[in-house]
Design a protein around this nucleic acid. Structure first.
Length: 338
DNA sequence: ATTCTAGTATGTAGCGAACT
DNA sequence: AGTTCGCTACATACTAGAAT
């Protein structure tokens, strides 16, 4: 055993310091390390910093010189970089000024775009003020908004309402394109929808984190998740955003779309127009169309990347266009198709 | 005075016809 | 066959003027 001693860089799990330690065997390095860090030898072992592989005497000779090792005591574990990332993430639970300042400092000098981006993202993530709700609590969030908006929920509500209103506006532009008798019926349908929308406050609750569980699309903290393209069950990219967090997210959120699964202009409106023209004594089920045009029944909140603009090639359900003919003809309740 | 509405502006994607 | 162009669809933002 005239092996040359091997020197390695050793650190303990909880210590930020590293020491150079040399030894001819695993056992020797371990012993010196425990001495150095004042740790009990019993139950302790060495592993590679890189991936957490535990060192054995057999393996020791093939460990490269100056390898980075971690000294673990009884019960401790190290899974390589992964553990470091876990610890890094834990900084997000309670972002400290120290962390923010350090990141800002690094960002100032950073030239490489990729690292720049990483640091900027980190700062962006840490400089959120999700809990704040009023203008007084988080003035930067409101920068550029009219003074009438005094709470984040209030503004988000408004922005949702105005999206929904614009759908209504588009439907409203159609009666003039149909004949006189159809027009009258169309206006009646429109009136019903309008009334419902008013009573629902234009479904502004979808964006309001303060709204009741079933009527909002976000978590109580304000997190929205992309619901994925119209023809998929979920978002493969797992997009998410919290417009309540800071001004940038608020603005970015405006690029997220409410996408009609069954398309408004290509399908729903033409079907509605047709239904009114051809009603032939039947009663158009305006509530069905209301659901398609204005509610989450047919609307998906999507990141712009998941917003497909191709024709969706979906049709309205023909069995729901007219109300079941109850009063006049039926003897028994109308059954759904079997 | 504030809020709402309706019209306009902005910007990207898809698609088919016309062109090279 | 590949490219360009014009049109329509998707969407939201902006803004002047009406309504409350």
């Amino acid at each position: 055993m005239l092996q040359k001693p091997k020197s390695v860089k050793l650190r303990a799990l909880r210590s930020p310091r590293k020491f150079g330690v040399a030894g001819r065997s695993c056992q020797e390095v371990l012993r010196k390390g425990c001495l150095r860090f004042q740790l009990p030898e019993r139950g302790s072992r060495l592993c590679l910093y890189e991936d957490g592989t535990e060192l054995t005497e057999d393996y020791f000779p093939s460990v490269p010189d100056n390898a980075e090792l971690v000294l673990l005591t009884l019960g401790q574990a190290w899974q390589g970089y992964v553990s470091d990332i876990r610890r890094f993430l834990s900084a997000f639970h309670e972002p400290q000024v120290g962390l923010i300042q350090a990141a800002q400092q690094l960002l100032c000098d950073e030239q490489a775009p990729q690292r720049q981006r990483l640091l900027a993202d980190l700062l962006h993530n840490v400089s959120q003020n999700i809990a704040a709700e009023t203008r007084a609590e988080d003035p930067p969030w409101f920068e550029g908004l009219e003074s009438r908006f005094q709470s984040k929920s209030g503004y988000l509500r408004y922005s949702c309402e105005s999206r929904i209103r614009s759908y209504l506006r588009e439907v409203s532009s159609y009666p003039s394109t149909v004949g006189a008798e159809a027009q009258e019926e169309f206006l009646r349908v429109l009136g019903s929808m309008c009334q419902r929308l008013r009573s629902m406050q234009y479904n502004g609750s979808y964006f309001d984190r303060g709204a009741k569980g079933g009527s909002r699309l976000c978590t109580p903290e304000g997190w929205f998740s992309c619901q994925g393209p119209f023809d998929m069950d979920s978002c493969l990219s797992r997009h998410s955003i919290n417009p309540y967090s800071n001004r940038e997210s608020r603005i970015l959120f405006s690029t997220w779309n409410l996408d009609h699964i069954i398309e408004k202009k290509r399908t729903i409106i033409p079907t509605l127009v047709e239904a009114i023209k051809e009603q032939d004594g039947r009663e158009v089920d305006w509530e069905y169309f209301y659901g398609l045009l204005f509610t989450s029944e047919n609307l998906k909140l999507v990141h712009i990347v998941c917003h497909k603009k191709t024709t969706h090639k979906l049709n309205c359900d023909p069995s729901r266009i007219y109300k079941p003919q109850t009063r006049l003809k039926r003897k028994q309740p109308v059954r759904k198709r079997q």
